[in-house]
Amino acid sequence: MTVKNYFPASEAETFDAGGGLTRKVGAYNDNMMCVEVHFETGTVAARHSHPHEQITYVISGKFEFTVGDKTYTVGAGDSLYKQSNIEHGATCLEAGTLLDMFTPHREDFV
């Protein structure tokens, strides 16, 4: 199997997830993936869970995240960890961009 090491942004497709949310998949392999996610102010990412572990790094903007039974207000430079199968969701308070990292990769995103 050939491993792909370079994922130019110019070749990444932007996926419109609806409701003011778009995403672009960056580098990934079977074990991990990074995804750039753009939110418009007021966009809500409904509470959900999945079997993947996830780290979210806030590049810009301001968000209210609920992870399990705790709610956090986060901004640029903050990060969150979400273990497998924990319910989580977010509301965008000020338009911004997140970098989500998943392990293993999200098959439903590619």
Rank of each mutant, 00 (worst) to 15 (best):
T22C: 09
F39D: 09
M33Q: 14
E36M: 11
H52L: 05
F15T: 15
G20C: 08
I55P: 08
A46L: 12
T56V: 15
S10L: 01
V67N: 01
N85S: 10
T2E: 15
Y28V: 10
M32C: 12
D78F: 12
H48T: 14
A90I: 07
M101F: 08
G20L: 12
F102W: 03
S79L: 07
T56D: 12
Q54R: 03
K70S: 15
T91A: 11
F63L: 08
T91M: 11
N29Y: 01
L21P: 07
G42R: 07
G42S: 06
F7S: 14
L98P: 11
T73C: 04
T2Q: 11
E94Q: 07
G19A: 05
C34F: 06
L93V: 05
G89P: 05
G42V: 13
V35S: 02
A45S: 10
E87N: 15
H105V: 08
S49A: 13
V58M: 04
L21S: 00
T91S: 10
T56E: 06
T103A: 14
L98G: 14
T22M: 06
R106F: 00
M101C: 11
L80V: 02
V44Q: 04
T66F: 02
M32P: 04
D69V: 13
T66H: 04
F7I: 15
